[in-house]
Amino acid sequence: MNLTPDAAGADVHVALERVDMAFGDRQVFRGLSCAFAAGKVSVILGGSGSGKSTVLRLIGGLVRPQAGHIFVAGEDVTCLSERQLYGVRKKLGMMFQGGALLDSLTIYENLAFPLREHTSLDERAIAAAVHRRLDAVGLTDVDRLLPSQLSGGMLRRAALARAIILDPVIVLCDEPFSGLDPVSVKRIENLLVQINQRLGITIVLVSHHIASTMRMAEHVVLLLQSDDHHPGTTAVAGSPEELRQSSDPRVVAFLTDECDDGDARAADVAAGNT
């Protein structure tokens, strides 16, 4: 694990190489290549339907590409069987959009579950580990609650706590801010940055939330669909600053369009900045 961002800069943790992906007749990517550095917070941006979430699912091996290679922590996940993938996935934590906590189990049991599955810790050590993660995400007195009894923001935090319970080296977050109030957005944002800085965990997150992205990201990957002038899916990568100063008309169009997209997002930006 890399604790200093500078040293991590050279180290590529996750990379996609010329990936083709289609669901049935719908082509999502053609020839997509991009990389995510170790120890950094990377954000994947893109319009709706650009396949942002699909990138995360590809990294986790939940879906398989038609062509191309995907390297996660040195292993090509496209060549691994489902069983072999389990080894890779233990190094990954994933925070799903809806939380994806098991709704028949309490929050405590949800967090304890991966530990019971993959470690031989006794009950006391499990309780300590679970409460340490819950404290880290700022949740108290939720042990006995079911996921359906939590608010959206609390649910995301519980999901984040579960994503880091096995001390992963990479955390994948699918739309961690969608549908949340500005205060919760800010809170999750801070948590992710903290996790990245304190534990040195690589974070790859998918968002259409430009304001928070530009605040927290060290590295941005913007997915642009193929058009008449640009065959294949292009990934424009760089720091938030580089993207802002980009002269590529498609990048400029995306950033300005999304920033002007409705009052709600403007309100988010305002709240986030105060």
Binding site: L62, Y86, K90, F96, L101, L102, P114, E117, R162
Partner: peptide, 18 residues
Amino acid sequence: GTMVATEQLDGLRMMAVD
């Protein structure tokens, strides 16, 4: 089916549980 729709089964797979 609900577990599929709410990504709970994908969540399990990501936790290396079949």
